[in-house]
Amino acid sequence: MKFYFKIIFILFILFAFNNQRIEAGEKNKELLKVDWSFKGIFGKFDRASLQRGYQVYSEVCASCHSMKLLSYRNLAEKGGPEFSKEQAKAIASNFELTDGPNSDGEMFTRSAKLSDKFVEPYQNIEEAKASNGGSYPPDMSVLVKARSGGANYIYSVLLGYDNPPSDVTIADGVYYNTYMIGNKIMMPNPLSEGLVEYNDGTKATKEQMAKDVVTFLAWAAEPHLEARHKIGFKAIIYLIILSILAYFSMKRLWSRVEPEV
């Protein structure tokens, strides 16, 4: 009987997981899987990949996609791409933004500082829509967490452009994507072989660029992931040891109570 009880209990927990699986399971096709370095108990970001990923983002994506929750200082913070402070400053100074008002009551333009948020490509969502055929290129700050399937999904979409099957008609300005929900995407295929030139000499294949930029986006969505994994490991080990201590303390205490409990 007790055993039965336990089984049901375990099923109950598994169930909670499963519900999520079902929701996620409405996909068209099995996603491409990448062995991400940031998955798993000791998962960490690959610094070089993050730096390359930033390069892909800034050269390819940033003209349409904002990342308004990030600041330039983040690029130099621990657990991220870890550019040097000077590099991050140099990156920031490439961007201009409107500040003010000054003492004359006028707005002025200045170059961005470390403390500034990433400068957005458009003034507002309406402009972004108007410039992109009526469809808003989503902000990419938490994009990896905002799509079920996460990093694999975005990686798959980046590499999922294909000719539509014969039974599917696609309007102008819409593209066919194997992995996109509904298969229709407004974004033209952003990646092509050798599109960017990596400073570290890595060959810029489509797969490489997709992997790098998704790594960058995964960090952007979860900037404290490395700290989380590190503290988490310690916390769980600690809890297990303390549970064992508590267990033996309990056994010893209860040994005073006459048996048959």
């Binding site: 040891i241 303390l242 201590l245 508590a246 033996f248 303390s249 010893r252």
Partner: peptide, 9 residues
């Protein structure tokens, strides 16, 4: 045992 548990806790 108790001291260790308390301290660790």
């Amino acid at each position: 045992l108790y001291t260790a548990s308390y301290a660790f806790g």
